[in-house]
Simulated scan of single mutants.
Amino acid sequence: MRKYFALIATGGLIAVALTGCAAPAEPQATSGATVDAVHVSGEFGETPDVEFPTPLTAQDTQCREVIEGEGDYLSPGQFLELGLYWANGTTGEVIATAGFDDEQTQVLTPSASTTPAPLVEGLSCARDGSRVVVTTTAEEFYGPDRGNDAQGIAPGDTLVFVMDVIKAYPDRADGAVRLSRDGFPAVVLDGDGRPGVTVPSSGPFEDLEVETLKQGSGATVEDGDLVVVNFTGVLWDDNTVFDTTWKDEGTSPTVWSVGEGGNIPTGLSDALIGKTVGSQVVVVVPPDQGYGSSGSGEIPADATLVYVVDILGIYGDE
């Protein structure tokens, strides 16, 4: 099984999901003298050998692809598995390395709000299988007149990142379209893949019900898997959205653990097991397989739930 890690924000570790709705026509940052001064060698997926003159001085964010990936530039909504090298370009000190050499690393739910803008810009230069070098300023990474004392980074310092895009998940289900049955919640997709859900006016189903709107051809979800998804959940009673990864600024995919001890309702978990990556499914979860008589957050007691789920991938799958 491949190991995973989470990207670095303001001193902690986080996973990264770039936010947005469509792939940029061009990278958001370009090459320049600062990033060109960083020399990188070594095999993809292995800890890189990195050399640069110190002090290295950056004025803005620059990026350069040193190992070419495949396909299009990364779409802003994709969830990524990365290897990361991070150094202080002013002092030459290595701050962290993670995700290389099948190293055991931390896995967290991706959060677009905690992804620093220079990494978003730098990763826009990358493709699946790319190794990219990104240089930026501490101020662009942390904010004006800010650094990170715990990491030994002063406000005026330059930061150097080398990132291997080990795996790039799609930002939406890409399976073959299938027709849904009459009387089932209807789903209409926006241009960016965002689902709109209309619940029938009739009473809710009493049992767990599942419809496949797109049939994927990828790996099969099994008990115990960590599944990367985009989803929208609505209440059957009034069609209110109670949770979604489709935010105003784009998507922020999440990771669900399915099976015994998972982090989602049992009905939803049971519905996903046996489905394939690339599928989009609609799941109607009755109260006794959802949050029951207690409810949860914006979900009231005894609520029937409707989920539209894009199955984007499975952690640990090669």
Rank of each mutant, 00 (worst) to 15 (best):
E121T: 01
G175V: 07
T137D: 07
G224A: 11
G20W: 04
G267R: 01
V309R: 00
G42S: 11
E93L: 06
W256D: 00
F5I: 04
R131W: 04
V120Q: 13
G262T: 04
A154V: 02
D101T: 07
G152S: 10
V132M: 06
V40E: 07
V229M: 05
P155K: 10
G313F: 02
G92H: 05
L119E: 06
N230C: 10
S130R: 04
L74M: 11
T245F: 05
L84S: 02
R2G: 03
D182L: 15
T90V: 07
L82G: 01
Q289S: 07
V284D: 00
Y169G: 02
A9C: 11
P204K: 11
M163L: 15
S124L: 09
I314Q: 01
L7E: 11
E68H: 09
R131Y: 08
V16L: 14
P116Q: 08
V221I: 15
G224K: 07
R194N: 13
E51G: 04
V120E: 10
Y4E: 14
G193V: 10
D149A: 15
Y85N: 04
F79N: 07
G99S: 09
L56I: 10
A112M: 05
T240V: 13
E51P: 00
G316L: 08
V160W: 03
T251R: 15
E140V: 04
V282L: 08
L74H: 03
